[in-house]
Design a protein around this nucleic acid. Structure first.
Lengths: 361, 361
DNA sequence: AATTATTTGTGCGTATGTATC
DNA sequence: AGATACATACGCACAAATAAT
């Protein structure tokens, strides 16, 4: 290894470790000479290389300084934000993306986007691509299967170590300690289930998603509402589904119908689940809301489609996307900014919940 | 002026003038020494500066060469495609975008996206942003109001002069002579209207969009089908709407109902228009298809929503997006590639068209 | 306000190593 | 194998800008 490369290594290490902060003066050429026992030309060679890279700045008569990090980042990293979501087509996603893009645009940022289809493989290849180019100013990520151990945390950590501001939406990876913008899933679920208990329902089942963090948070809201109302909870009434189940709901048809047979009310993970369940019940001749009350979350288009009048807690969609974009921009300008925000929404009342009569209980 | 700067000036001038073309070898260090009567260190200093900038490349034992210009440009322009569409939320857009992203990803490209909301102002600021950064490998653009004179053609022409491969989707700007991937709007509209004529309809009205190129092409398909069936065409039966009208359909309610009063069939520009018109008719007690047959285009979710069984010519959505992405990638590798493709689709038959009885004619 | 020490910038000489042709 | 060309390294001298005295 060449001597000048040793010097380069020593300086870059000290910068990375923080011993040499941006703006600080590095040892003078002569000091490096005696320190490394090299000639001044060799020291100059090392400094020259780092100066060409933009890492150091020399001022004649004064010294050589570590470049201001801000100058470096704004030069390298353009005003482009990488957005990663699970899906784009349908449900709440287009409107959330619309909210992100629109607000980012207000702040002069452009948006680069990719979709994981809720698979770890795609998430990994997207992150690898971003790491390879390393030319973005920040990231907004909707987690993939956030309730399962994520095999791509190494890449997320690498991005964080490169000081790329990162903000999660809808859910978050608890291991990463990054800010997130989402619904307050626990509280919103609590309100949805409370809607049922206030209408006299005691036997309330729920269908949840097991691989998303939201599923766990919403479960906790369900438990709270049930406990508060003094309702008993049967494990049989709680159905856990994963992403793959949602794509093949027919397979779970019998299980769901059997498990919820005794219930008078159902809390569905989201509108997509609610619509399927209502269809299953309808095929068995069970009418909503007369024979079964249903509450759900997200208040998507589905909640009003096909004559559906589903009571659902609205996902803020554009509003959430815009808030995420806004907070990320703040985070870019101030790494200490408290960017986490959770929306508390009230359930939109339509016609999928009825009062329980005494006889039914 | 420093001696090494004179050398730098001499070399850069010879590169700019073309005397030193990319890939050519520059004089050796020793030759520069005698030529400028300088020491070898000074010559090395000059070469080192230019090497750091990426203008020269030294190869030990061989010589110093002018950097291949191609290497420079591909280093700048990463594998990122800029996508511009009018909207993202709802209708056919999410699925089209999904198709683009997925296929681009297969080819190793990432996607940067922005939405014009079908306004020239936003389109302009998006294009300005792209021009400023100049770091994309190609563009996929859904035109904004393609049937109206576009005030942003200067920016498109600037992008084209920078040899950025560009492909349009859904429609195109006729002034630009760029390839496009879209439906064959004329032929698809022809088939939709033919569906009505084959069911005996003679008095067929249509509601078209005047500011999109598709509106004009679909009108031409309508004319062809009507002419072929020997049907008379009344100007009164043809209603032209623009983007702003679509956002305030109520304002056009009376006009539409009056104009189409005598018709037995309607060809709607797309499902969004069809749904509104069917709602207007329903409010006047006119039943579909008994009293009025309706055909439409795009076959979006709307065509099956709310008990609708709309006969509609399907927009290829994902398929179209994927084809656009694929053809753009071909265009990037071969500027002469014939990237234009028009999909011919057959109408999806549901239940919004009925046979005309002799008495009704 | 002038002086002085420090620090980087420019320039030259020499020597040895190593890859290429 | 030898000539050529770049890579690394040390030595010195002086200029120009800066900072401290």
């Amino acid at each position: 290894m060449a001597k000048y490369q040793e010097v380069i290594g020593w300086i870059t290490e000290r910068i990375d470790s923080g011993a040499l902060a941006p703006g600080m003066k590095i040892p003078s050429e002569n000091e490096l000479c005696s320190q490394f026992r090299i000639s001044r030309q060799t020291a100059r060679h090392a400094i020259g290389r780092l100066e060409a890279k933009g890492i150091l700045t020399s001022r004649r008569g004064s010294g050589t300084y570590v470049s201001d990090l801000h100058v470096q980042t704004t030069a390298n990293r353009q005003k482009r934000i990488a957005v990663i979501t699970t899906y784009v087509d349908g449900y709440i996603f287009p409107r959330m993306i619309q909210g992100i893009e629109s607000k980012l645009n207000d702040y002069g940022y452009s948006m680069q986007i990719a979709f994981t289809n809720n698979t770890f493989e795609r998430e990994r290849s997207i992150l690898e691509d971003i790491l390879q180019h390393d030319d973005i100013a920040g990231m907004i990520v909707e987690p993939t299967k956030s309730a399962l151990p994520n095999p791509n945390l190494d890449l997320y950590r690498e991005l964080i170590s490169r000081r790329i501001p990162m903000l999660f939406v809808n859910s978050y990876y608890p291991e990463l300690n990054c800010p997130h913008v989402s619904m307050d899933d626990r509280k919103c679920a609590y309100r949805a289930v409370k809607m049922l208990t206030e209408h006299g329902h005691r036997k309330i089942g729920c269908i949840l998603k097991l691989d998303d963090g939201q599923g766990h948070a919403r479960y906790s809201g369900y438990l709270q509402a049930m406990k508060e109302a003094g309702n008993q909870i049967h494990d049989d009434w709680i159905v856990w589904l994963d992403t793959e189940d949602l794509a093949h709901m027919e397979e779970n048809r019998e299980k769901i119908c059997r498990r919820l047979k005794e219930c008078t009310g159902i809390f569905a993970y989201n509108d997509q689940v609610a619509v399927e369940v209502i269809r299953f019940l309808g095929e068995k001749g069970i009418r909503i809301p007369e024979q079964m009350s249903v509450v759900s979350m997200d208040d998507s288009d589905l909640a009003q489609m096909n004559g559906m009048g589903l009571d659902s807690v609205p996902h803020p969609k554009e509003k959430l996307g815009a808030k995420a974009a806004e907070n990320l921009v703040h985070l870019i300008h101030n790494a200490q900014y408290g960017a986490t925000h959770e929306f508390e929404e009230d359930i939109t009342v339509r016609s999928s919940v009825s009062n329980i009569t005494a006889g039914e209980q």
